[in-house]
């Protein structure tokens, strides 16, 4: 985000701050005008407006910053939750993967056993036939 986007973003997020600044400026201009025309009571009034508007701007600025920083900390919390969930998911997937690998190993072992037994049976048959042939002679 470049500065002009940030400026527009912040003005939209906290429109009270630029507004308060403009009101403060207007109050100072009116105070200057009444001072020049010698209306001392009005000058006093506009000085008070100036202080009031500036206080308002400052409160809006600080309160706004506080509010948005709090919201962002809530966002941070939710993001951490999301990360934790993802970690759990990853763990589950890893366990499944381990299971799958175990199954493959088991299947390989079983196939090995099967082929061994088959071989033994074939050998047994062979020996049997040989023995039968010898007894026939």
């Amino acid at each position: 985000m470049d500065t002009i986007q940030k400026l527009i973003y912040k003005s939209k997020q906290q429109p009270l701050v630029p507004l308060g600044t403009v009101l403060t400026t207007i109050a100072v201009i009116l105070a200057a005008k009444s001072l020049k025309q010698g209306r001392k009571k009005d000058t006093q009034k506009y000085f008070r407006y100036r202080v009031g508007f500036q206080a308002f701007t400052l409160v809006a600025l600080v309160a706004g910053s506080f509010w948005y920083s709090r919201e962002s900390s809530a966002k941070k919390k939710s993001r951490e939750d999301l990360l934790r969930e993802k970690a759990k998911q990853r763990e589950k997937l890893w366990l499944e993967e381990l299971d799958r690998r175990d199954q493959i190993i088991q299947a390989k072992k079983k196939r090995l056993e099967d082929s061994k037994r088959e071989l033994r049976e074939v050998a047994q048959e062979g020996f049997q036939k040989e023995r039968e042939n010898e007894s026939d002679k």
Binding site: V17, P18, T21, T24, V28, A32, L35, R50, Q54
Partner: peptide, 16 residues
């Protein structure tokens, strides 16, 4: 006094 108010206003712009 007017000068103080003008400078305060300028500071507000500067701060912002």
């Amino acid at each position: 006094m007017l000068y103080l108010h003008v400078l305060d206003m300028l500071w507000l712009f500067m701060y912002m």
